[in-house]
Amino acid sequence: MTTIPAEYGLVLATVLFMLGLISLLIRRNIVFMLISVEIMLNAAGLAFIVAGSRWSQADGQVMFLFILTMAAAEVSVGLALILQIYHQLKTVNSDEASKMKG
C-alpha cells in the first residue's frame, strides 16, 4: 500500500490554515470570522495528526481531540458573545464593534 508522504499532509494543513487566515482577514461578519478561526484550528489539528502519523504515535490524535473540544467550547462562548453584540449594536459587523480605541 502506498502511503501518502507526510509532507503532503503538512502542505494540506498549511493550505487550510492559510485559507482560514485569509478568510478571517477579509470577513467583517463576526460569525464568519469565528468560522474562519475554526478552520484554522482544524488545520492545526490536521497538522498534528499528520505529525502523529509520521512518528506513528497516538499523541497527535489525542491533541486533535483536545483541539476539537476546545473549539467547541470556544464557539459556544463566542456565539453567546455574538448574540450579546447583536443585541447591543444590531449588527454583527466586527468593524462596528470599535468603540474602544486610541
Partner: peptide, 13 residues
Amino acid sequence: QSGILRWYLIGIV
C-alpha cells in the same frame, strides 16, 4: 489602536 478587530489581526499576521 483603531479599535477595529481586523486591524489587530493584521497586526498579528
